[in-house]
Amino acid sequence: MKTTLISLFFALTTIAAMSQKEAYYQAMGENLGGYAQCRSVEDFQALGNTFARIAETEKNEWLPAYYHAHCYIIMSFIEQADPKKKDAYLDVAEKSINRITEMAPGEADVFALQAMFYTARLVVNPMERGQQYGMLSGQAIGRAMGIDPTNPRARLIKLQNDMGTAQFYGKDVTEFCEQARTLVAGWDNFKPVSPLHPNWGKDQAEGIVKSCK
């Protein structure tokens, strides 16, 4: 009887743990599906908040914090009028960025997002921040490419940064079009570790290709 009870107890806790994991997969899956519906700052804030809730509970997972930061970076890009708000959103993103760079220093996607974060800081005031944040973004992207040179998001952000610089200096951007085409063509060769891992960016790369024509 006793052994039965113990084994039952273990079985139950395992089920509980599994259902917990399942709940995690399910919640993450639902939220990732939510991206498609997001348009406004408010939409992304609501979505970011749900990732924040999961991150709060799942202290050992870096993905919820990753998407939380991602949402808040997008918010700073969408926000047009108020530079103070842009910085406030990025202050929120920064906390999660710092958390995931410590938690998952071996993930190329983490540093690709960090590069995107620095670019967002730069965009708030390019005249005054250009030099500092341009360099920081370049360093982060270098780190991402160092970990995995095939990561499509790292390559996309590098491409966007390089194109921005080239356009600024009035250089020809057609050489980047070729790179963008290669990137899009090979995009699906990169297989995310799991369905929850970052898999965004292809449409943006396709956007670059389209703008080339």
């Binding site: 709940a23 408010e42 609501a46 908040n49 749900t50 809730r53 509970t57």
Partner: peptide, 19 residues
């Protein structure tokens, strides 16, 4: 305050405030 994150720590349950 619109967009505030309301939740129960330890669960995923919560919501963001509306406008």
């Amino acid at each position: 305050l619109p967009g505030a994150n309301v939740y129960i720590p330890g669960t995923y349950d919560g919501a963001s405030t509306d406008a």
